[in-house]
Write a protein that binds this DNA or RNA. Structure first.
Lengths: 128, 128
DNA sequence: TATTGACCTTCCAATGATTGGAAGCCCTAC
DNA sequence: GTAGGGCTTCCAATCATTGGAAGGTCAATA
């Protein structure tokens, strides 16, 4: 099948499929006589794997690792678990940073009258 | 003072100060006879404002708005509060997305033995 | 006075994942 | 044969930030 159909079937856009090929996340697709990329059902299977991993927030670098583990029948599940746990940890760190921002912002917003008058503790805080 | 000292005093890197000037977040700095950028204490004050806003996760676009409100003595605090509340809302949305990822990942990781054997529910889920 | 080292300048490039567009070729149907 | 839709490559933009190269400036020191 052509790239458009592979995109449709996998949920990965044609643009991204070309990009993943260029960056070597996936191997270069076979080409038809006229130069069109040709995809098998197995290729679509791989693309779907990538799509799901992206939906869970894994970086392309992490997906490279997950793909190689997926294809390695001698993998140890501990390796896969480690990638997942590290990703969870990264997500938690980011959440904590954002939550701290929210805590500060919420307190400031609460102390701001939010009316027609100019005085505003939010600006005061940014200025101070 | 020169850009290096302004960077030191404000916590904004010299690279970023030049970038903020280029993108018109701040007005172009005065220049010395030899072409060096020259900064006043007021400029540093503005840069510090920007730095604090960035630390709270505001985008440059939002900071542009905050800066103009800061300098507008006829502003209504409601406008400032709105910017803050919208930013809080954006942060919360992102946190929720990440938390959902964590929930899925944590469940998968928990069901993975994480030992020397290859079978792994995490990979199964990504594949399915 | 000449040199050295720290600072400044501009310009270009890369990050990460994704999207957009332009110019041009291919394929199918009418 | 022509119209259209899909495919190709290449270039650019997003967002905030960092890095580096090549070259000019300044202050202090030998």
């Amino acid at each position: 099948m052509n790239i458009g159909q592979a995109a449709e079937a996998s949920g990965v856009s044609a643009k991204m499929i070309r990009y993943y090929e260029e960056t070597r996340l996936i191997r270069p697709a076979d080409r038809s006589a006229s130069g069109y990329r040709v995809y098998s059902h197995e290729d679509v299977h791989t693309l779907r794997f990538i799509r799901r991993a992206r939906d869970l927030g894994f970086s392309v670098k992490q997906i490279t690792l997950l793909l190689s583990l997926w294809q390695d029948k001698n993998r140890e599940s501990a390796q896969v678990k480690q990638v997942a746990l590290e990703h969870i940890s990264e997500l938690q760190t980011k959440i904590e940073e954002m939550q701290q921002m929210i805590d500060v912002l919420a307190e400031l917003a609460e102390s701001c009258h939010g009316d027609h008058r100019p005085n505003c503790p939010i600006l005061n805080k940014l200025e101070a």
